[in-house]
Structure formats: C-alpha cells, structure tokens
Design a protein around this nucleic acid. Structure first.
Lengths: 147, 147
DNA sequence: TGACTCATGTCAGTATCCTGACATAGGTTG
DNA sequence: CAACCTATGTCAGGATACTGACATGAGTCA
C-alpha cells in the first residue's frame, strides 16, 4: 500500500475512470439481489423513457454492441419483461411488459439510492456544474472521434 | 434515432458512464497504433509513478483483478518491458525496463493529447472543480462499499 | 426504375475478464 | 510461541462481451 495519494490523483482522466468504476461496482452490488446487472437495468430504464426503441438504439444507449444487447433482449423476452412484436421493416421495436416495468421500479429505487449516496457531499451548484462539465467532455471527445 | 436529448441526460450517473466510455474509446483509438490497450498503458504509468509496485497493487490501480494483471505482467515481462526479480516474501515488485519506459513515453504523449482534447472547452476553474467533484463522488461511494 | 450506400438484426468464433479455489507469507493477538 | 487472520501469487473453469461476416430493408441519386 505504501502511500495512497500520488500524482495520478490530479489526472481528470484517471479520476473519471475511478469514479465510473466505483459507481459501477456500487450499482452491481444493489442490483445483484434483484437478479439484474447494469446493462440489464440500463436497457429497462431506456425503454421506460422512450417506448419502442430498437435493438441497435438500446445498444448505443447502454454502451454495448448490438450483439450483446440482442442476447440480453432475447433473455428478457423469454422472461416476459419485454415484447418485440411487429417488425417495422427490419427494425424490431421493443416495449416493456407490466412485469418488466415492475422489475424496473425496484431497480430504479435501488439505483437512485446509490446516486444519492454518490452526490451526498455535493451542493446543488456543484451538481449542475458537474452536469455541464461532463457534457462538455463528452462533446469534445466525440467530435474528433474519427480523427 | 428520433430524438437525442432525453431525461437521461440529466442523470449524473449516466453522464459519468458516458464520459468514461467516450474517454476509453478515444484512448484505445490512440493506443492501438502503439500496440497497447488502456490496461497496458495504465500499468506502465503506475510503475513510472511508483517504482516496484506489486501485482495486486497494479491490479487495484488499473481497476482489474489480480489474475488479469498477472497475465498482462507475464506478457510484458516476456516482451522485456518490465522485470520482476527479487521476491520480497511473497510479493513480486515490478520495475520498468528502459524499453518499457520508452514505450510509455510515446503512449503518454498520445494519451495526453486525448486528455487535452477532452478538457478543451473547460476553464481552469472548471477543471479543478471537476477534480473536487470526482474525488467527492469516489469517496462517498467507497465509504459504504460494504453496506 | 435500378444501382448504390447505409443501418439493422443475426450467426459463429474468439478474446477478454472474472469467479472460485488453493497454498503460502506476514502480521497480530492470546 | 502458536493460532489466527489477512493478503498475495497462481491455477483452472466459466461467463461475458467483442470482432468479423452475412443477408435484408430503407433511403438516395442518377
């Protein structure tokens, strides 16, 4: 262990990864008792906010590939949490079932408690500043993605 | 695609994941031509900042398991980027070779350019605020990790 | 209308990382 | 000193996500 505070603690990139990792661990922790993982939860949350998203759209929103999201959706459909009925062309719009919506509710509560814990030491001003900063970072990184 | 800006964009947790994902993608992009990935780079950077770190310490610093870091270190040792000589008890301190240090230099430059791009739209004040905010989040999440 | 381009859903194969388990070294406590 | 507990390095096995590739539907342009 030796020391704990080194130069790396002044790197925004490293801290970003560390924070994201800590958040992921905390979320997995509260979602495991509910039989969910982060991708599973993200998928349901996305569907709750925008009904009828396609497989590809969900994949982008959850930061996984189409293939990964596809196997997840197959499992969710098998478990009766979502339905994928009428193909619009080649696109398969997905919708939450009552069961899926119910599962999501418990998960949302669990995840919200984690978010509140994460924001505990921050003022409202700091929170909105954080939103602004993160949006700026994302925008700057995406812009020259193809550089 | 339909709309792009939804309610999810006000969730700090989601934006954190999005930013981290974008940063990871951008880093992988610039590291690939150098024959590195993010974990590989993180390992070398950690060793440059603190000589003689053990496998477990490196794993924690790079946010992977001991096993994953171990196979990476074996590969790095085989390629002559690091050395693991005198076992202190059971601990195997790792050190950078000149070759490893040289590879790291190029990688650091590449990664720094990504970080600068990420911070392009932010003032100095915003950057230090971001450091403060991320540290607070990490601290709050870690505190009750065993809850 | 026909050719072209792009995005989608899906299949197969592979790489990557993690979980579980074990023996061992170090430190602590009685 | 001995018994415990923790942390380390390592091995095997399995889960998870990704890359590559294919055929199909939608939109565009001549």
């Amino acid at each position: 262990m030796s020391q704990d505070g080194v130069d790396l603690n002044t790197s925004l990139g490293y801290l970003l990864k560390e924070a994201s990792s800590a958040l992921r661990v905390a979320m997995e922790e509260v979602l495991r008792p509910l039989g969910m993982n982060v991708t599973h939860y993200a998928c349901l949350e996305l569907l709750a906010q925008r009904e009828g998203l396609s497989n590809s759209e969900l994949a982008r929103g959850a930061f996984v590939t189409r293939q990964t999201m596809n196997v997840l959706l197959q499992a969710l459909e098998r478990d009766g949490e979502v339905t994928r009925e009428a193909p619009v062309g080649k696109v398969l719009p997905t919708r939450l079932t009552p069961k899926g919506r119910q599962n999501l509710e418990k998960a949302t509560a669990a995840v919200r408690s984690v978010e509140l814990r994460m924001l505990a030491g921050l003022t409202n001003d700091e929170q909105s500043t954080a939103l602004h900063i993160l949006r700026s970072m994302i925008h700057s990184l995406r812009d020259s993605d193809n550089a």
